[in-house]
Write a protein that binds this DNA or RNA. Structure first.
Lengths: 90, 90
DNA sequence: TAGTTATTTAAGTATTTAACTAAATAATAC
DNA sequence: GTATTATTTAGTTAAATACTTAAATAACTA
């Protein structure tokens, strides 16, 4: 989760997640959506992978990226604790 | 939401939110939980407030901080889109 | 009034982050 | 084999971040 919060703090990485919500994409396809060099996108993808927000899957010379939803579920549980509990007010 | 993601990326700020989950606290009480100067905590509180993750409420010479749950709810909705939808796989 | 306490603001510094270009790796095609 | 394409790694730099101490602000107390 620690890495996920860091990963989610960058707007480019959040936009990559939005793209992957629609369908799986290669690193190259992802980079086409941004005015940014491929190495920069590759670095963002690396961080998203480290945070377990995406999977990567090499198919020949292409690397397909897809969403890994488990951390999103953890994030929901985490946020729920702040609204549901609402311990006794003093 | 943009500011919230940034605010949540720091472990100290997440720990502050955990403290406030239990009960409302003054800036001074919050700073006692950390090996960090009061100005540093004050700065973190400022960012949490800008991100609308906390409210502040001056009572005499003390400033009480409390959770603002609205952004947590937005965060849950945001995360839900990544798991629930799961558009058609190609 | 002056003195104390609670908190924030200002200014400076060290670390981290996000970008770039150039080079390396790996798979495909000829 | 060489050439081409897809992607990552390495090295560099500029900007953002997180901390510090010192000073400012504001409220309370004697």
């Amino acid at each position: 989760m620690k890495d996920a919060f860091k990963a989610l703090s960058d707007p480019t990485r959040r936009e990559i997640l939005n793209l992957l919500k629609e369908k799986d994409l290669t690193a190259g396809e992802i980079s086409e959506h941004f005015n940014m060099s491929k190495p920069s996108i590759s670095q963002h993808l690396k961080l998203l992978k480290q945070a377990e927000l995406v999977f990567d899957n090499k198919q020949g010379q292409f690397v397909y990226y897809s969403l890994n939803t488990t951390v999103f579920q953890e994030l929901i549980s985490w946020a729920m604790h702040f609204i549901e509990k609402g311990g006794q007010k003093k």
